[in-house]
Design a protein around this nucleic acid. Sequence first.
DNA 1: ACAGGAGTCAAAG
DNA 2: CTTTGACTCCTGT
Length: 153
Amino acid sequence: MEGSIKFGLWFVYIRWNSDNLVSRIRFVKTAVSGAVPVSLSKYLAGKVTTLYPLESIHLREEGTYGEIYRQVHAIPYGEIKTYKEIAEFVGTAPRVVGLAMKRNLTPILIPCHRVLSSHGLGGFTPDISIKEDLLKLESNFLKKVKIHEQDQV
DNA sequence: ACAGGAGTCAAAG
DNA sequence: CTTTGACTCCTGT
């Protein structure tokens, strides 16, 4: 199954199967017909913090890249880590983490936007502004939650 | 066998 | 502040 949904100036394309296993997520300029999973549209609307029950094919991968993808996947919503931190945990070089992120077939699901460089944002394909938007989306959601909690006290 | 990354750090201009 | 070079190590060819 496949489909797309608008996100800012881009469309998020997604392809998945009946087991909620996602094989591809991509940022494209023009819409692809078809609906997307509810959890994805809610996430992009800033209404939920989890993509469950969607799962990335990368999590089942063997070897160094698999380790990297699992570590990145474990970064909580709204939090960030550096390429270096991930590299040290997995036991490899920061550049290898960068490479793995560039070849990430399922961004958002494997939240590569939460991995920044030591000095700045780091990169993002096809456009760095998407990375900024996703980070903004998550920090805005967390702010709202805080305000709501204060109301209840 | 080899070149190249979504990186990092120190040193120099 | 910006540029340069050394270091790193996995992947695709």
